[in-house]
Amino acid sequence: MDRHRRHRVGKLMNLRRFSLIAVPYVWLLGLFLVPFLIVFKISLSDIALSIPPYTPTLELSEGWAGFRDFLSQLDFENFEFLATDDLYWKSYLSSVQIALISTLICLAIGFPIAYGMANAPREWQPTLMLLVILPFWTSFLIRVYSLIGILSQEGMLNQFLMWIGLINAPLTILNTNIAVYIGIVYTYVPFMILPIYATLTKLDGSLLEAAEDLGCSRTEAFWRITVPLSKAGIIAGCFLVFIPALGEFVIPSLLGGSETLMIGKVLYEEFFANRDWPVAGAVAVILLLILIIPIVLYQRNEQKMMDADT
């Protein structure tokens, strides 16, 4: 056996493997991690009337002293500002509230749909799946847009409610928080349906029969067996709705009104309208800190689901 050659082949394989790992790795480092560190850095800077509109900027030409000088000028002033100005913490609270309530409504609407799908005749199920996935592939913006016409003063919803005699005069729904709730539920409910449907179809029907055999009524069997065993899907669905809803920008700006405070919209306006980059950076950092808890919980749930599958 030619040891020398084998060594070279091994080296070549290592090189290949190295580049296979390095290309996506470097890409993500450069375009995901570094940008985020930049946001973090800017959040510690001060606003300035310059280009770029913040100080300090890192002058690498000044060497180590310049770096030390740069570090000494960074502070948590922006974060203190966020804490004292009630616009920000109200926005955070209201975002969490809106996301949370929307998530619960999504669950209340999504679970029966998923349950109905899972219990529908088997030959219907691919079609029903398709019907849930179709809006998911359709432009998000267009789906939000389609609600504007429905929810406006002269819109279909008001016309319908007046026609059935529930109200006498049209309600103002568009440009209120109600519209934001409807928008989030409408656009995100497929994210709730799909994971719940997935766990429900995996549910072994003989478990429900066993529960009935042991003395449960149908309803009792539903609460004692179906619900606990679809817990992982429910949790996954809730996070899939809650996490993006929390940072939502399009829905509050198109459907919400002046009363609607959502942190995604605040961040966008802080950056583009006020050109206060450091504060926008700080808003982003806090938003991420808030999101870390649900994200970690979500990951743990996914892991559990995967373990349960194997």
Partner: peptide
């Protein structure tokens, strides 16, 4: 880094990339 962008709010991804490009 593979999983984080999936759950990252779009406003943050957009903001951070813009700051990088600048």
């Amino acid at each position: 880094m593979i999983y984080a962008p999936l759950v990252m709010p779009e406003v943050i991804t957009g903001l951070s990339l813009l700051l990088l490009f600048i």
